[in-house]
Structure formats: C-alpha cells, structure tokens
Simulated assay, not measured.
Amino acid sequence: MTTSNHLHPLAAAAAAGVAAGVLVVVAGAAVDGSAGAAGAAVGAAVTLTVFAFGAVSVDLATRIQPRSGLLVALVTYALQVVVLVLFFARLRQSTLLEDTLDPRWLAASVVVVTLTWTALQIVTWHRGGTPVRTVATGGER
C-alpha cells in the first residue's frame, strides 16, 4: 500500500474555500464594517455549504458505484444551481440586503470562494494523478 502526501481534493478545496471566505470577511469588515463582513460571511457560508454537499455527494456515489459518477455530478450540479437561485431570490425578497448584509460583499465572497474551491479541486486532482478514465469507467483498462 502506498501513501500520498497530498490532501484529498475535497479537504484541500474546503480548506482553501474557508480561508478565502475568511479573507473576504476581513476585507468586508475593513471596508464597509459589519454589513460588509456579514454579507461576505453569508456568501461564503452558503457557497461552501452548497459546494461541500455536491462534492460529498459525488464522492460517495462514485465510491459506491463508480460508473454513476458523471450522472450524479450532473444531477448534483443542477440541484446546486437551483438551490442557489432559490436562496438568492428569497434573500433578495427579504429586507436583509437593505438592512444587514452588503450585497457587494456577498457577491464578492461567492465569486472568490467559488474560484478558490474550483481551482484547488482541479490542482489537487491533477497532483493526485487520478486518470480521467479511472473515474469515468470505475477502473483501469
């Protein structure tokens, strides 16, 4: 059995996403006070929750049935988009964006956490050396 010094892609992406979220919260607090920090915190928390749900779902599905990975990933992605759209539509209808949360910092946090999470997942999968055909077919050929 071999061991790897690399983090699991989910752990690496989550850690980087949390770090990016914290940086945006600090920047929001420094620039726009509590509304900036709160907006950034909500954006980071929602994004991290949705991404973690998707990554864990796909990871579990591919462990149980490796050939189901692409289907589960596509369905999970569609569900993530729907959940985010519904969440932000509901948030927009509330008075939180006017009173408590700065929408600019919320959006900035969503973008920064999304880009960080995605980049770290790509980098760690690439470094892990998992061939695409192994993931797609459930084994080496």
Rank of each mutant, 00 (worst) to 15 (best):
I64P: 00
A40S: 05
A35D: 06
Q65T: 14
N5Q: 10
Q65R: 14
V81A: 12
V72N: 00
M1W: 10
A27V: 14
V82D: 06
N5H: 13
L101Y: 10
P9A: 07
R127E: 08
A89V: 15
L97K: 01
A89K: 15
G28I: 09
T49V: 15
S34P: 00
T114H: 06
L120W: 03
A55H: 07
T49S: 10
V83S: 10
A108I: 08
V111M: 11
V111F: 00
A41Y: 05
A35V: 01
I64F: 08
R133E: 09
H8L: 06
T114S: 15
T137E: 14
A107R: 09
L10M: 13
F53Q: 08
V113P: 05
W125S: 11
A15D: 07
V18Y: 08
A38R: 04
V82E: 06
V132R: 10
V83M: 09
Q121H: 07
G129T: 08
R127K: 14
V75Q: 02
T2S: 13
V112Q: 06
A89N: 11
S68G: 03
L23F: 09
A107P: 00
A89I: 11
V113F: 06
R127T: 05
A38L: 14
D32S: 13
V18T: 11
G21C: 11
L84V: 05
V25I: 15
A37Y: 00
L91H: 04
T76F: 10
G28Y: 03
V25D: 04
H6P: 02
G39T: 05
R92W: 09
V31H: 15
A14I: 04
V25E: 03
A78H: 05
P131G: 07
S109H: 03
S57R: 12
V24N: 06
L120Y: 12
L7N: 09
A37T: 00
H126A: 07
L86M: 11
V46Y: 01
D59G: 01
L79T: 14
S94F: 07
V46P: 00
V46I: 13
T95S: 12
W117V: 05
A61G: 07
A78M: 09
I122N: 07
A45M: 07
A78F: 08
A30I: 02
T2K: 09
V24W: 01
L106C: 03
